[in-house]
Nucleic acid binder design. Sequence first.
DNA 1: GGGCCATATATAGATTATCTATGGGTAGAG
DNA 2: CTCTACCCATAGATAATCTATATATGGCCC
Lengths: 109, 109
Amino acid sequence: MGKKSELLPGTLDMLILKTLTRGALHGYGIALSIKRLSDDVLTVEEGSLYPALQRLLLQGWVKGEWKMTETNRRARFYTLTAAGRKQLSLELSQFEQMIAAIGRVLQDA
Amino acid sequence: MGKKSELLPGTLDMLILKTLTRGALHGYGIALSIKRLSDDVLTVEEGSLYPALQRLLLQGWVKGEWKMTETNRRARFYTLTAAGRKQLSLELSQFEQMIAAIGRVLQDA
DNA sequence: GGGCCATATATAGATTATCTATGGGTAGAG
DNA sequence: CTCTACCCATAGATAATCTATATATGGCCC
């Protein structure tokens, strides 16, 4: 019958940026963090995550740096840039405005 | 710079179905209703609306009937089917679950 | 040493949903 | 007789997600 998306389309970049406000993380860690914070409701598939990170790099909203993890593995750690913080705040306010608007449409009466 | 979508992707079908719980409407009327209830935040473009209505017809979630409007124009009026009501309730609960999950990720701390 | 799981990155291709742009057409007001 | 609001619809572009696949390593168990 067609499975629903694991994510609300259009929210992934915002979720990634927000996750990075808590500190630098590699891609895998970002996905885990979102999954856990959302109580397993939101699952970021690899095929969505890495292209999204490339987009964010290209836009200059995050920067990436290859390092070793605690478990001694090679991984690329992402940090928010100043532009990324600005973008996050923009996306947050647009998102909240939309959710409020949808809420008005979904109200009874 | 690239304009953002006028709609949160993935919510259009739900918005249309919900709008039809208030009574039968033609496509144009649905778009107006969503725009007005949302205080002009949500704009359903024609190129999104009519394909969406075709999808809903195909799924059996709405049925359409050609009639005359109050202003004496030919228009297709859509009504929710029983399956459509069921689908709406499903989409509403999934949406609320997702919004709650996103809310948890967006929380500070 | 061999097998497996969790960790980690990345790309190709398909799918879906939206948008932009365009086309047709009618009623009523001025 | 022209303009605006009303009404439907499709083609093609764009964007964001998914599925599937490929690669590779560290640590654990046997």
